[in-house]
């Protein structure tokens, strides 16, 4: 029973399925809220040393959950990990959702930051304040049009089922919420115009700028100013020549199945790719994996003190 309350996904019933006892979910939410309040209250009220220990304990407990989930042998059939009746694999999903909730709260902080910075730009008429004004206009236009379009679906449970039925009363005009099935690909409402017409195209424009930047960056990189730059240049030429028909034509005279076939440009480029580049990338991957493991251990065991916040003890 207690385990069922702690983790509503364990036991015979799934709490998220309709018809399951609702009280377990309510008690689960209340317990979670109580625990959060107690931990946050303790962190704010305790002294420096006690706060440090509390934060260390929370970090260790949170990390330990995933360590146990990784190290404990799973069930042979379901491949899910359980400990004393608590299904850790399913519980990791709940913890993931909790992370999403925290991220949702911090999103408000992000919006506050944007409003603060751009509001100040307009208030003090700083250079480029027009851009800040355009931010507010875009922000409000997207927010209002998106909410107005979806407003009915939030409150009317039959909306999805009946929205295309004749006689069904839509709350918004078609230029705000276009449900015409013939416009399914591109609804004729203001949100779609803003999102599909403006945002997506501006996004694509930024991406397409890359093509020009690649040329200018490549020009600078290929200027032979050192031994390393020379190696980079030669390798790049071999790789490019190996990929295009014009380059391949240079060594086309060498027979494909002859003794010297390894000197064909496409063979050399494949050799560079598979025998030199491949192992180097794997070696970098090993180093990065170990670096991430080391840092994860340091953060989990609270050994990385003073890096983010100064030592106060």
């Amino acid at each position: 029973m207690i385990l069922g309350l702690i983790n509503p996904l364990t036991g015979t019933d799934d709490i998220w399925i309709v018809g399951d006892p609702w009280y377990r979910l309510i008690i689960f939410c209340l317990l979670a809220a109580l625990l959060c309040t107690v931990v946050l209250g303790a962190i704010h009220m305790a002294g420096n040393q006690a706060t440090r220990l509390l934060v260390m304990g929370c970090a260790f407990a949170a990390g330990l959950f995933y360590v146990l989930e990784f190290f404990i042998p799973p069930d042979a059939k379901s491949q899910e990990v359980s400990l004393w009746g608590v299904n850790l694999t399913q519980m990791s999903g709940i913890i993931g959702n909790a992370n999403q909730v925290v991220a949702g709260f911090t999103f408000l902080l992000g919006v506050y930051n944007l409003v603060h910075i751009h509001g100040n730009n307009i208030r003090r008429l700083r250079k480029g304040w027009g851009y800040s004004l355009s931010f507010f206009i875009a922000f409000l236009a997207m927010t209002v049009s998106a909410f107005a379009r979806d407003w009915q679906s939030f409150f009317d449970p039959k909306y999805d089922e009946l929205k295309n039925t004749a006689g069904y009363q839509l709350w918004m005009p078609s230029w705000v919420n276009d449900v015409d099935p013939t416009h399914a690909l591109m609804p004729h409402d203001i949100f779609s115009v803003l999102f599909e017409g403006f945002y997506r195209n501006m996004d694509a424009t930024m991406f397409s700028i890359l093509a020009f930047y690649i040329v200018s960056a490549a020009y600078r990189a290929f200027r032979i100013r050192s031994k390393e730059a020379a190696v980079l240049m030669i390798t790049a030429v071999i790789m490019m020549m190996g990929q295009v028909p014009l380059g391949q034509a240079i060594t086309a005279a060498i027979p494909k199945d002859g003794f010297w076939h390894g000197l064909r440009i496409e063979e050399i480029s494949q050799f560079v790719l598979n025998t030199i580049n491949g192992p180097v990338q794997r070696a970098i991957g090993f180093g990065l994996g170990l670096g991430a493991l080391g840092m994860a251990l340091r953060i989990w065991l609270s050994l990385e003190r003073g890096t983010y916040f100064e030592e106060t003890s």
Partner: peptide
């Protein structure tokens, strides 16, 4: 102590977890 806790937690998991191991 922290490393020891990990070992103890793992041992508990091995002995009280599913019999797959």
């Amino acid at each position: 102590c922290l490393a020891g806790l990990l070992v103890v937690a793992m041992a508990l998991g091995w002995f009280f977890g599913a019999g797959y191991w």
